[in-house]
Nucleic acid binder design. Structure first.
Lengths: 231, 231
DNA sequence: TTAGTTATTGTATAAATAACAATATTTATT
DNA sequence: AATAAATATTGTTATTTATACAATAACTAA
């Protein structure tokens, strides 16, 4: 049993890596950056960097994401922490994954700092990434799938006003299954949606009605009744 | 925007704290230790300590748990990570919570190293703990509750052979609700259980039949069919 | 006007949920 | 041995939810 003085432990670094999910053309996308720095220079990665010694984690996650991609005002949630001693070639860097769900069309992204490029990539077309980022991404996607079943987070990915078919496509893409249209609509009956008088435009078939999530009504339901979102 | 050299970031420390859950007398218990060291000397805490610079996280979690409580061979799972800059009075220490589910009666626990005492405490009777351990414990209990609904982990807490009533009590304690006996039995029908010819002994009423979880059958179900554990 | 395409609603059946009643098996007591 | 007390176990019924598939409606493009 070896003994180590307290200060010997202060030889770590700590980073945060953010998985930003978006939804476009029926596909769940992930925001990637191209690294302009060693290690893994020119490889794609999820945006992440080291935390300042006095910085709270969620603050740091927002700062880092903004520095690399100019993405701002997104709600970041913590996922898993990865700490294999050799995961970073330059030293012991433990990292926590964060994730956010955004409406792609509402946000501007732009490569900045040491990010040479940024782009949205459909989850099922993700290339080999720097560090253990494929591992991080896969584990975070699993978390997303779980949350999709018991929290109304699909509405953070969908446009403010969406068609029921878009909502169905999101679930179909996430879980890799096909669903029956009629039954899907029955299943989501308990979810408080606002049905608008508006319809799709510029589609070359019968346009679908637009809906939006009624978050006020959802808050009431969850606080008063024993309502539980379920998909 | 201030600039920091890479090495300035290596001023962290990293710890792991383990929440060990057990089930006894109809109550979910948590294993606590009494700290023999500053800071928070003499306060109760969940077992945790610093990670060695070259140590993988899950290995470290096992080592630390054993050093403090002599608890061995338990399956630890990662929960949330806590990193508030002021959470540790002696420096920047980020910590990841781990948790395990054990059968109290099968394991020997014993205070060791800088743990002065160890004891099992029912979750609803937890005192004020050192550091942010109440926060960690509560968030990990929430995670446990979620997992209880979609994974057959209650069987890691229950005795190898248990009565259906004990199983029901576990869920009732976790979720703070009363359930109907008859309906509970119908609800768990899809779960593969082995019904034994054995009964409770030393009870002063009609003894209940003993069951055990059929994990082989469960593995088959999850791999072949589209079976999903659900409670 | 009509074919093509997708949106939306309906119907019938099976399965799961929930509330409550009834019966069975054991221990403790007379 | 008979009976009360306590808990285990199974049944019954009505209601809701899930599943498969059919039918109808609304729009575009030709």
């Amino acid at each position: 049993m070896y003994k180590i003085a307290f200060n010997d432990f202060f030889t770590y670094s700590f980073s945060l890596d953010s998985v930003i999910f978006g939804f476009r053309n029926g596909e769940i996308n992930v925001l990637l950056i191209k690294r302009a720095l060693e290690p893994f220079k020119n490889m794609w990665a999820i945006p992440g960097d080291l935390v300042y010694p006095d910085e709270d984690l969620s603050i740091a996650a927002e700062r880092i994401l903004f520095e690399l991609t100019k993405l701002n005002n997104v709600e970041l949630h913590q996922a898993q922490t990865f700490g294999h001693p050799k995961r970073h070639p330059q030293g012991r860097v433990i990292t926590s994954a964060y994730f956010a769900l955004v409406r792609i069309e509402e946000f501007h992204v732009e490569a900045s700092s040491w990010a040479e490029e940024v782009k949205w990539v459909p989850f099922h077309e993700i290339p080999e990434l720097a560090f253990d980022h494929n591992l991080i991404l896969n584990s975070t996607f699993e978390l997303l799938k779980k949350k999709l079943t018991y929290e109304p987070i699909c509405f953070d990915l969908l446009p403010k006003r969406f068609t029921l078919n878009e909502m169905q496509q999101l679930y179909e893409y996430a879980f890799g299954v096909e669903m029956d249209k009629a039954n899907f609509r029955k299943k989501i009956k308990p979810i408080p949606l606002i049905s608008h008088d508006e319809k799709q435009i510029n589609v070359k078939h019968r346009p679908a009605k637009l809906f939006s999530f009624n978050s006020e009504s959802y808050e009431k339901l969850t606080s008063t009744e024993s309502y539980q979102f379920k998909m």
